[in-house]
Amino acid sequence: MTISHDVAGDGPVVVLLHSGVCDRRMWDPQWPALIAAGHRVVRCDFRGFGRTPAPDRPHNDAEDVLDLLDALGIERATLVASSYGGRVALEIAARRPDRVSSMALLCPALPGHEPSAELRAFGAREDALLEAGDIAGAVELNVDTFLGPEADEATREAVRGMQRNAFDVQLAVTEEFGRITVDFDLSAIKAPSLVLSGAHDLADFRQIAAGLPDVLTDARHVELPWAGHLPSVERTSAVTDLLIDFLRG
């Protein structure tokens, strides 16, 4: 299955990978700017998000992205990834370093990270709400947890819609299929990387971002004092400028 995607523009390829709270629409503010800056831009929905159906078999999101790039004839790309998408980007870059020219990771997740009590409590609360059938409550929990103080009501509504869609798609299936996990070594990553974190994010993601330069060959970390977990939708122009400057470098 080819995951749902958009592709436009000409030039060096940039692939946008969404967070687990959103889908590919989270990149709407950056999409035209990156194309105008001279890039061929690809964005996709992971299985169970946006317009990609829920999984019908065990799957691996990194493999899905690599299969998409193969289908589009793309040999090498920059990965720009948010949250869970950052975890997928790290897997791609570690397993196939020849395919990744650089990475910009926004509040990335990390395989093997031991969640804090705060993050475990969030997960337990989300599970309880979903099991009780309170999907709207689970949506609001995610919006309140992952958006920082810069997010206005329009941004909150956009994230609310993407998270609700993901729950609706994923909860509609009668059989759940897990993700195939693959071991990989982060030290294999050679791509120059920019790692962003938000000062208002959960401590887990701040720690992951701050620690990645100690693991990756060529990475620098920047904490955004105004940001929560989703800076690209919270202050869109500031993040767009950061990304374009990074791509030029």
Rank of each mutant, 00 (worst) to 15 (best):
D214Y: 07
A199T: 02
A132V: 01
A71E: 14
S101K: 12
D245Y: 02
L68P: 06
M26Y: 07
W226Y: 08
P108G: 04
D144H: 05
V222A: 05
A132E: 04
F167I: 07
P111A: 15
D245M: 02
W31Q: 13
E91A: 13
A227W: 01
E118S: 13
A166E: 06
L224T: 02
L147S: 09
C107F: 02
L202T: 09
F146E: 03
A188F: 08
A154V: 12
L141G: 06
G148Y: 05
S101D: 12
A209I: 02
L16D: 10
D185N: 08
A117S: 14
T240M: 01
V233Q: 09
L243I: 07
Q207H: 11
Q170N: 14
Y84C: 07
S101E: 14
D201F: 08
A238G: 03
A166M: 13
M26I: 10
D23W: 09
L171N: 12
T217V: 08
A166K: 10
S83P: 01
A117G: 13
S187I: 14
R57A: 15
L147H: 10
P53H: 13
R95T: 13
I3L: 13
L194C: 04
L72A: 04
T78Q: 03
D28C: 06
L202G: 04
R47N: 00
G133C: 06
A121H: 02
A199L: 04
L17Y: 02
E234G: 08
P58D: 15
S197Y: 01
V239P: 00
H5I: 06
A124T: 05
H5P: 06
E140H: 12
D10Y: 11
E153D: 15
A104T: 09
A117D: 15
A219G: 12
G48Q: 09
H221C: 05
A172S: 12
S187K: 15
R164C: 00
T174S: 11
L194K: 00
R220C: 03
L17P: 01
A36M: 06
H5E: 07
V42D: 12
T181L: 14
A81V: 04
D64T: 09
A71Y: 03
V21H: 11
D204C: 02
A77P: 04
H5Q: 05
H18S: 12
L66R: 15
S187Q: 15
I74H: 11
T240F: 02
A154E: 15
G112I: 10
I180A: 13
D23A: 06
T217F: 02
D28G: 07
F167Y: 15
V143D: 05
